[in-house]
C-alpha cells in the first residue's frame, strides 16, 4: 500500500507567474470582446426614459398651470349703492336717521349672503335713501376661526381696508356676490385681491393695509366683543337696541320691523 506524497506548496515565484498569466489572459479576452456601448446600458436607457417622462409631466404642469384669479373670474354684484345713500366707513345712511340697524355678519355665512343680496338692497332703496334708516356693519367673523387661514377674518379685514378708502359698501357687495361656500377658498388672499380690484380699491394701499394685520386684529376684537354681548349667530340684527337673531324671511317682514322701529323711535 503506497501512501501519496504531500504536494509541495507553490512558491512565491509560482504564484507570481500564475497572477501574470491570469492578467495576460484578462487583457487578451478584453481585446477580443468588443466594448459595450454605454448608450446600450439598461441603466442609461432607464435614466433617459425617466428624465423624459418627468420632463413631459412637468411640461404639462407648466402648460396647464392655473392663472391667478382675475376680475374676469368674478361675479358682479346684482345691485349698486344708490347715489342717495351716504356712506361713512361701515355706516350707510344719514347720521341722524331715526332707526339704526346694526348688522352683525360674516362674509362667509350663507344666511348673511342671502340677507345682503336679497333684503339689504331693498332696505337701502326704501329706507336708507329716504333718511329713515342707517345701516351699521359689524363683524361677527366666526366661520373661519378654526382654520389656519381664516377666510371670515381676512374677508372682513379686506372690507375694513376698503372702508379706509371710502369703499366699504362696494367691497361688501362684491364680497357677497362672490360668496362660494364656506372655507373653500372663495376668500383666499389672491381672490380677495381680485375682489378689491373689482371694487375699485387702490391695490398698493390695500396690500399694505392687509399686510399690517391691524384690521384682522380689529375684526377679531369686534367678533369677541359681539360674542361677549351674546352675538353668537349670524346674521344678528340690532334694530334700535332690539335684537333679532337670523334674517327676516322676506322683505315684507323686514319692512314691517323697520316701520315699527321708525314709528316707535322718539
Amino acid at each position: 500500500m503506497s501512501r501519496a506524497t504531500p504536494s509541495t506548496p507553490p512558491t512565491r515565484q509560482d504564484r507570481r507567474r500564475l497572477e501574470l498569466e491570469q492578467r495576460r489572459e484578462q487583457r487578451r479576452s478584453a481585446r477580443e470582446k468588443p466594448a459595450a456601448s454605454p448608450l446600450r446600458s439598461p441603466m442609461v436607457l432607464f435614466t433617459a426614459g425617466a428624465l423624459i417622462v418627468g420632463a413631459v409631466i412637468v411640461g404639462i404642469m407648466l402648460l396647464f398651470r392655473p392663472a391667478p384669479p382675475s376680475v374676469a373670474d368674478l361675479l358682479p354684484p346684482g345691485h349698486e349703492i344708490p347715489a342717495g345713500a351716504v356712506a361713512n366707513g361701515r355706516t350707510l345712511g344719514a347720521a341722524d336717521a331715526k332707526v339704526t340697524v346694526e348688522i352683525w355678519s360674516d362674509f362667509q355665512c350663507p344666511a348673511c349672503m342671502n340677507f345682503a343680496t336679497q333684503l339689504e338692497p331693498l332696505a337701502i332703496s326704501g329706507y336708507v335713501v329716504t333718511g329713515k334708516v342707517k345701516l351699521v356693519y359689524r363683524d361677527a367673523a366666526f366661520q373661519g376661526q378654526r382654520y389656519e387661514y381664516d377666510e371670515s377674518t381676512e374677508a372682513a379685514a379686506a372690507a375694513r381696508c376698503a372702508a379706509d378708502q371710502g369703499l366699504f359698501w362696494q367691497m361688501h357687495n362684491w364680497l357677497f356676490a362672490n360668496w362660494n361656500g364656506e372655507n373653500e377658498g372663495a376668500f383666499a388672499a389672491d381672490r380677495l385681491r381680485a375682489i378689491a380690484t373689482a371694487a375699485g380699491l387702490n391695490l398698493t394701499t390695500y396690500d399694505s393695509c392687509m399686510a399690517s394685520g391691524d384690521q384682522q386684529t380689529a375684526v377679531r376684537n369686534e367678533t369677541a366683543s359681539g360674542l361677549a354681548a351674546g352675538i353668537n349667530q349670524t346674521p344678528t340684527l340690532i334694530i334700535n337696541g332690539a335684537k333679532i337673531v337670523g334674517s327676516p324671511n322676506n322683505f315684507a317682514d323686514f319692512a314691517m320691523i323697520l316701520d315699527q322701529a321708525y314709528a316707535a323711535a322718539p
Binding site: M43, T47, L51, G54, V58
Partner: peptide
C-alpha cells in the same frame, strides 16, 4: 424602481 422614483423626484 429606480426609474419610476426618478420620475417622482422630478415631479
Amino acid at each position: 424602481h429606480y426609474a419610476l422614483s426618478l420620475v417622482g423626484v422630478i415631479f
